[in-house]
């Protein structure tokens, strides 16, 4: 009865969304596999089929592999900084007695800001002329020691080849920390309090408590965080784009920005799509691999 009545809604409710989704959401994805085999400059009336030529061009394109390299650097750099630090911050927030709400609130502020805003903020903070950072270092007499420590001849944070990539990783850390800390906090909140109390009565404390109780129970959260970091890391675009105003130097060029430039600046639409097919394959492979790896470890626990 109810079902028969409700079925009246199937066409009017499902129809529009399914139509929109199929045409705008899904179909272009399928079309992409054809586009990847063609050459098109957006001007000519003809889209030429070129077979696998785009992929062989890709293999020989050193700018692309430079971008792939940088992307890997950013993804790994973000994982090895964000994952442990956000976990640490979550535990610290749980452990403090006062100001828990305050810390939760403020720590998440960078994450709600637009990436564009975060990028501007850091461009200006780090600028040697109008920024806060370098004048402060100079006033404290830290400029020279820092230069020696880092082995650079200038504290050109976003331009020096030794500094540009780590700086971007740190900016990502600053922006992402709140988000991932809150994820870990949610994971920690799921751990039953009795379990921790029981473990404490049994004499577990500090590192032992973490190693044997918290960490294994937090594992599903860690797995999620890792997956998010990988997927988001490989697809990084806006931060790199906004930090450089579109004139991205090869020092920080990443896969997504290179695909965008190939398509909309160089107007090699077919080639750009071939590159994005490659990007998709990478994302899928990494997703599967990380799922498999963490699954095995979870069983060991």
């Amino acid at each position: 009865m109810l079902q028969r009545e409700l079925r009246k809604l199937v066409i009017p409710f499902l129809g529009p969304s399914l139509a929109l989704y199929l045409v705008i959401g899904l179909w272009p994805n399928l079309e992409a596999f054809y586009w990847a085999l063609t050459e098109y400059d957006g001007l000519a009336p003809i889209q030429t089929y070129v077979g696998l030529e785009n992929f062989s061009t890709m293999l020989a394109d050193r700018r692309w592999w430079g971008a792939v390299n940088n992307t890997i650097y950013f993804a790994i750099g973000t994982i090895i900084t964000l994952l442990p630090i956000s976990l640490l911050f979550a535990i610290l927030i749980m452990s403090v007695r006062r100001g828990r709400e305050f810390f939760k609130t403020t720590i998440y502020i960078p994450s709600i800001l637009s990436v564009v805003i975060v990028a501007f903020l850091w461009v200006f903070l780090l600028d040697s002329t109008i920024g806060l950072f370098n004048p402060a270092l100079k006033a404290l007499g830290l400029t020279e020691p820092l230069k020696q420590l880092l082995g650079v001849n200038s504290l050109n944070w976003l331009g020096h080849p030794k500094l540009a990539k780590p700086t971007i990783v740190l900016i990502q850390l600053w922006q992402g920390l709140g988000f991932y800390t809150l994820l870990f906090l949610a994971g920690l909140a799921k751990i039953p309090g009795e379990l921790l109390d029981a473990a404490r009565i049994d004499g577990a404390a500090g590192w032992g408590l973490f190693r044997h109780i918290t960490w294994p129970l937090l594992f599903p959260t860690t797995q999620t965080v890792l997956l998010l970091l990988i997927i988001n890391g490989v697809q990084i675009f806006t931060l790199v784009y906004a930090l450089s105003g579109g004139g991205i130097s090869p020092l920080t060029q990443v896969m997504a920005t290179y695909i965008y430039r190939t398509a909309f600046t160089d107007r090699l639409f077919g080639y750009a799509t071939a590159l994005s097919v490659f990007l998709m394959a990478v994302v899928m492979a990494l997703t599967i691999v990380s799922r498999e790896l963490t699954k095995r470890e979870a069983i060991e626990m």
Partner: peptide, 9 residues
């Protein structure tokens, strides 16, 4: 599916 795949089409 990553969003970039369908960007051009």
């Amino acid at each position: 599916i990553p969003g970039y795949l369908a960007m051009v089409p």
